[in-house]
Design a binder for these strands. Sequence first.
DNA 1: GAAATATTTAATAGATCTATTAATTTCATG
DNA 2: CATGAAATTAATAGATCTATTAAATATTTC
Lengths: 211, 211
Amino acid sequence: MPQDIPMEQLIVETAERLFLEKGFAMTSTTEIAKEIGCNQALVHYYFRTKAKLFEAIFEKKIKLFIGPFIDLYRDDVPFEEYLRSMIEKHFDLIKANPKIPFLFFNEMLTNPARMEYFRTKLSELPRSVLAKMEGKLQAEIAQGHIRPLSTFDLMISIFSLNVTLFMMAPMVQQGFNLSDREMEQLIEHRKSENVLIILRSLRPLIENENH
Amino acid sequence: MPQDIPMEQLIVETAERLFLEKGFAMTSTTEIAKEIGCNQALVHYYFRTKAKLFEAIFEKKIKLFIGPFIDLYRDDVPFEEYLRSMIEKHFDLIKANPKIPFLFFNEMLTNPARMEYFRTKLSELPRSVLAKMEGKLQAEIAQGHIRPLSTFDLMISIFSLNVTLFMMAPMVQQGFNLSDREMEQLIEHRKSENVLIILRSLRPLIENENH
DNA sequence: GAAATATTTAATAGATCTATTAATTTCATG
DNA sequence: CATGAAATTAATAGATCTATTAAATATTTC
């Protein structure tokens, strides 16, 4: 029925939407086919198993998610500015794909096998990102511009602040009865809030601060 | 087989463990019964449907999770100290029940019906917590001790930092090959880190800070 | 200890789901 | 337009899952 989109692509797109909406377990190949209006065997004709279909989608999404950080590093820009830009890019990326973090957590936590599978696949990407950050960060620390801190800690803080907002978003919007416009404002406000929180967290320690 | 625990309790405990491990959809009443070693019909004898069993557990867990905040508020303690203690209590609570946040997100996001169901049930609790915080926070702002900020923003930041660590924990531990002892140290470190991040984020704005 | 009640099991209906196979249709190409 | 390949469907085997019912067993109570 849908105009002229190749069936294989149609299946991927539909599966993508349903997997993101309801997770792997609660989405059936039957439902994917029904949604498209094609025979259920066709899903298996193109992808053989539901797991393979899922993995193809999952891998693509994760790469799309990590990719933008590979070539983010610029040497000619002050650290604080670089960091601000990185936090905002990360934030915008999640904003554009708000359901990926949940899919990620969902599959990693409920299916240890998949976790092992993707641990090997994806371990280089985060490592290269971390390595790039590491040098600059330690230099700043050595100069006394920011407090001693591991790249890992910094990344966890950024990730936590950016990701959780979007995992909570549906509940927040419904719970507080926010219009789409209001929600959009809330989100943009949180972006600058997160930048402020992170930048402040890096400042050199002052007397008596750590308890 | 298990010594002298009433069957109903045994079912709840087993279901609890499995639901937390694998979520609602991927846990079957058949599996719960098999785990215990009893007949599968017994699960339905006590709880009629899988959904009712789940809801009983879910509700209990959420209450356990929000409860500690009800009577947290003390008037005789400086705001910063109060806040530190609240962040740490929240953190420890998640540490003691690290899988609840995921269960919460999982069910809220994949099952809109359940979301509606619990929205009504749980809306008073967060509201009362928020209300308690609100007064003190606004007073501090009026006095110029902290920057203008909504209670909502503060709560989101605390929640984000505290929760995400534990959602990531299994991946972090496996990905970096950390021993239980090392993981424990990492967690405790993050607790003080989160306190520091939040407290710093509240300080009054300085010249030119918000871009 | 017998009757009544509660718990547990066996059996199964009815749904649904994954994956396969064989048959059918569509389509490109000589 | 005939033929072979590709795409699609129909049909179905085999698993599993939820929920119910009736029968069997255990427990309480008189």
